[in-house]
Design a protein around this nucleic acid. Structure first.
Length: 466
DNA sequence: GCATGATCATGC
DNA sequence: GCATGATCATGC
């Protein structure tokens, strides 16, 4: 019988042993001298931790790693922010979803719950310039899900399972759910698996905790929980309604009212010129103090977008996303692109409409982009990448009546796709970033910042659905 | 100094 | 009146 440096039948002993890692590194704490050149896989921090610190062989059992006490070990990278101390570098990836089996399970006997009911989490500080053996371990502690969170996670699990039961495993998206996601796993998401109720193969996926949720775990475990305000006030509430229903019902009270009327009813005064006016208005409607973050939204990485519609229901403007780097896009594949990641988030749209020159709250809508539309954006993204690589961004240069040069580009326009297009998003035409390939027509080595936009006609359709 | 949400201006 | 290129304003 193998000897372990901890008592495998005692959770306290395992956790105490894990805590000896705090402020240490793998190189300092592992029982054998490691030769980093022999270790190449990504995700090997976890493997080395298991094999050379906890002294068991990495496995892919359906049971928790410390099965005698039901504890599952997970190691995950964090990064340091100036203000917020530590945040997660990425989502926390848990066990792989077995499409063939999960449709027969319920939550309580599911492989997800059996394995991840109780986690032993090791968070290490990821620093680019260092070898992973020298990453400093900052947090080592156990985690189990609070009751209210667990209700949301159960619901997320059901959504994922139902999609598989409906033969739509290939259409799964992280945006389908709130805290527990179904993220792709394997090389560039190219790893395909069978699903039980459809012929088409689906990308391999794993259960994962959203990055925002992991941030909360880190904040709780390090005792530095920033100030959050809750939408969900009690366990009873979340047992009877979903988060989405709770949020919508709070907004519904103000439907049809102008901004002025809403401010009056809320009995608050917020700076209407402030950049965060709409964010503050939403917080006030949800009953959250303005200096606090909305806990459930940050845990679920929900992106809130305010849209102002014209009288004909067409949004007054297209909807922008962050500026992209030309040099990054050409070296990336679609599966790892920034825009795909963003579009697989859950969104909350807050729709206002101009009626008699006044902005009226019409409705709010939780939304995530359907599978087909994400595929459509892929075409826009591929086209963009192609244009950058070809060095043929500028198609024509015109001069307007003020003598200003207007450059016409080959980037995908609204005509190219009904969903999305590429357009400038900069201070002015001189607000530029580096091009990987010089533009053939203008010889420019830098170009005005651009980003992906959702077409306003597409956003109109989101507004008009149910 | 930049990121981000918001908006303008011109030509077709 | 829309599509597209360009730009503004605020906050960190």
């Amino acid at each position: 019988m193998k000897e372990f440096p901890y008592d495998i039948h005692s959770k306290a002993s395992i956790i105490a042993y894990a805590k000896e890692l705090i402020h240490q590194t793998l190189r300092l704490k592992c029982k054998e001298v490691l030769e980093p050149e022999k270790i190449k896989n990504k995700g090997n921090f976890g493997q080395i931790l298991e094999q050379y610190y906890f002294l068991y062989k990495p496995n892919s059992n359906s049971e928790p790693d410390f099965k005698e006490v039901g504890l599952e070990l997970k190691a995950s990278p964090i990064k340091k922010l100036k203000k917020l101390h530590y945040v997660s570098k990425e989502r926390l990836v848990l066990n792989i979803i077995n499409f063939m089996e999960v449709a027969e399970q319920n939550f309580d006997n599911s492989s997800f719950w059996k394995k991840n009911k109780n986690l032993l989490l090791i968070f290490y500080l990821h620093e680019l310039e260092k070898n992973f053996l020298d990453y400093k371990i900052e947090i080592a502690d156990e985690w189990s899900f609070p009751d209210i969170d667990l209700e949301i996670i159960k619901n997320d699990w059901e959504i994922i399972t139902n999609k598989i039961k409906n033969g739509k495993a290939h259409e799964l998206s992280e945006g389908d759910t709130l805290y527990l996601g179904a993220c792709t796993k394997g090389s560039k998401g190219g790893n395909l698996r069978e699903q039980p109720y459809a012929q088409i193969k689906a990308k391999q996926r794993a259960y994962s905790l959203k990055q925002g949720y992991v941030n909360h775990i880190i904040a709780s475990l390090s005792g530095k929980n920033p100030i959050y305000g809750k939408v969900i006030s009690s366990l009873e509430l979340v047992k009877s309604s979903s988060l989405e229903e709770i949020v919508v019902s709070k907004f519904q009270f103000y439907y049809g009212k102008t901004i002025e009327e809403i401010l009056k009813l809320l009995n608050i005064s917020i700076n209407k010129k402030a950049k965060n006016f709409y964010a503050n208005l939403s917080k006030a409607i949800l009953g959250i103090e303005l200096n606090k973050e909305i806990e459930e939204f940050s845990k679920a990485d929900i992106i809130v977008k305010t849209v102002r519609l014209k009288e004909n229901n067409l949004p007054a403007e297209d909807l922008s996303f962050p500026v992209f780097k030309y040099t990054e896009i050409i070296s990336q594949e679609w599966e790892e692109s920034d825009i795909k990641d963003i579009l697989e988030h859950k969104f909350l749209f807050v729709f206002f409409k101009f009626e008699k020159e006044q902005l009226v709250l019409k409705k709010v809508k939780f939304w995530n982009m359907p599978y087909q539309d994400i595929n459509e954006i892929q075409k826009v993204w591929e086209r963009t990448k192609h244009v950058i690589i070809s060095g043929e961004i500028v198609k024509d240069v015109k001069v307007d009546k003020n003598g200003k040069k207007i450059r016409v580009t080959n980037f995908p326009s609204k005509k190219f796709s009904s969903v999305s297009h590429v357009r400038p998003h900069a201070l002015n035409a001189n607000d530029v970033i580096e091009l990987p390939i010089k533009d053939k027509m203008t010889q420019a080595e830098k170009y005005t910042k651009h980003c992906f936009w959702l077409n306003n006609s597409y956003v109109k359709q989101i507004y008009l659905q149910d």
